[in-house]
């Protein structure tokens, strides 16, 4: 054993393998274990406090026959899509400004822009409650200005507030990949486009935008995937109408104590997310672009 390891260490090509081996084992182990246990649980059933180990597709059938489950999943995907869209649309000009208009200390700019995101996620959600709440900043300002006579209730505890809060929370995860894809654009390409007759706006749509699509795609995916499964934000700012699939899964693994049903739900979400990501990719028309 020791001697074969030593032999491994001496061959040059295997040195690389040895270097990545711990990480690969760790990642594959963790992910593999998680997926395997989800798969296993999803074909078992819960009988009060007991797990019944007879394999069955009952949980999947149950998921599809209960409209509320599919509804919540579809709604979560839609909210996550909208939140990702808002995030990316808001992040793009910020990244563009820093990449194209700032000439010095770009990284410092990025750090300063993402500074608010260094504090706790929960605190940020609570501050949105302070802003959008019944006695919050928006309402009291509008009241003081005499624009409304009683506080607006529709701005908190609904899907709108969930989207706003999520978009803000995930902004840095969108800004950074988009910024990096812009940094990699050779600026003489824009000169070449101008030389060939393009105005500033045409240069943007014909050169900058297509070359930043990989960054926009990474940003969308990076933001979309975690949002689908989020259950903290909907719970805190979504009210009763804001429930998402994550809240339900949280309940299945918690209060309702139905791990098999939760596992089936998680796997179905996984597939739905993968399909949606492919859809995003197709919509953006991301081709295999090597930007050097």
């Amino acid at each position: 054993m020791i001697s074969s390891l030593r032999r491994l260490r001496h061959s040059k090509s295997s040195q690389g393998i040895l270097l990545v081996l711990p990480a690969v084992v760790f990642v594959l182990g963790i992910i593999g274990f998680a997926i395997a246990s989800l798969l296993a649980y999803s074909v078992w059933t819960q009988d009060y406090m007991e797990i019944v180990y007879a394999p069955t597709l009952a949980n999947y059938v149950n998921f599809l026959s209960e409209p509320i489950f599919s509804y919540l999943l579809a709604k979560s995907l839609l909210i996550a899509l909208l939140a990702s869209l808002v995030t990316v649309v808001a992040a793009y000009p910020v990244a563009y400004y820093v990449s194209f208009k700032v000439s010095r200390h770009k990284l410092l700019w990025i750090m300063v822009i993402t500074l608010p995101f260094w504090m706790s996620y929960l605190l940020r959600i609570f501050s949105w409650k302070l802003i959008l709440g019944y006695n919050g900043i928006v309402n009291s300002t509008l009241l003081d200005l005499g624009l409304i006579t009683q506080p607006l209730e529709f701005i908190l505890y609904n899907n709108f507030s969930v989207i706003i809060t999520l978009a803000h929370a995930w902004a840095p995860f969108a800004i950074i990949p988009i910024f990096l894809s812009m940094e990699r654009i050779d600026r003489t390409l824009l000169d070449a486009a101008a030389d060939l007759g393009d105005t500033a706006l045409q240069r943007f749509w014909r050169v900058t935008w297509p070359l930043t699509l990989p960054g926009v795609f990474s940003a969308s995916v990076l933001v979309f995937i975690p949002i689908v499964g989020d259950y903290v934000t909907p719970q805190l700012v979504g009210g009763t109408n804001g429930t998402m699939i994550g809240n339900l899964m949280f309940a299945m693994f918690g209060k309702l104590n139905d791990w098999p049903q939760g596992s089936a739900m998680a796997l179905i979400s996984l597939v739905a997310i993968a399909l949606t990501v492919m859809l995003i990719r197709w919509c953006l028309g991301v081709r295999k672009v090597e930007v050097k």
Binding site: L196, T199, R287
Partner: peptide, 18 residues
């Protein structure tokens, strides 16, 4: 540049990679 009847061959070619 976009209103001139001149065209340039750039040093690193500046071909559009996409």
């Amino acid at each position: 540049p976009h209103k001139r009847n001149t065209n340039m061959v750039f040093q690193n070619y500046a071909l559009f990679p996409h």
